[in-house]
Amino acid sequence: MKVVPSRSSEWVKPVASQKPASAIIEIDRVSQVFQTSARKDHLALSDISLTIEEGAFVSILGPSGCGKSTLLYIVGGFVSPTSGAARIKGQAITGPGPDRGPVFQEFALFPWKTVLGNVMYGPRQQGVRASEADALSRSLIEMVGLKGYENFYPKELSGGMKQRVALARTLAYHPEVLLMDEPFGALDAHTRTRLQNDLLNIWERDRKTVLFVTHSVDEAVFLSDKVVMMSKSPGRIRQVIDIDLPRPRRRSELLLDPRYQKYVVDIERMFDESDEAGSAT
């Protein structure tokens, strides 16, 4: 792993300074090559290594085309890497499993199932009894703020509501890690902030490990314990930054907090620098 030297390296603290936590996901020298056209190969990910501690909220931040979603899909087991390996709790990832629950930008709800049917799908698949799954799903639907919409079909919901259902559907089968692939990318600004707040509130309850892909610097800083900055072509980890801001976080307080502002400005500046460096070559 190459770390580009930067003025802001003061923030790259050794992970050990945080509370001691065990690694849940290890990404070990992963590379991914896509064939784009007849003779051209595209190196989407180059030699990525990354460790994610249990209970951490980690964002992967980068410009579009840097392979950040691909990295998430590799952890999910949806895509297998060209070389290298990803592990969960020391076990090599060979395919998708209920220990890693995805939430996609495209929602990917089952349109033929109602809200309740969608949320119940996972637990039922795991063999939970219908009455139990029903009760669990109803409480989750209430938690994401959709009480009263249990019998609606996805086509009758707005984008924000669909994403709430998708979150509840994934939480329903108790994955150990949430894999969120630009989940709020398709939503308008207002809905987006509301969902960010709600996601943090839900996360505070059980502090599941979250791997969160985004291209928004605000979003990454606001939500995360750790931000993994990526650069593109080839996709590499540029820098890993710990976000040392108190929790629980309130948006209204955080926006006025100079530490938050400094994180945002510095990260944006680093991306600008690499853009200039990129255009110079």
Binding site: G76, G77, G95, F104, P111, Y121, Q125, Q126, T170
Partner: peptide
Amino acid sequence: EKMLWSGAAMGLSPLQRLVRIVLPA
């Protein structure tokens, strides 16, 4: 594709995905 991935994450086998996701979709 993402719908099938969601199903796979819930533990559906390829045949189950064909019958329970592709068929209704």
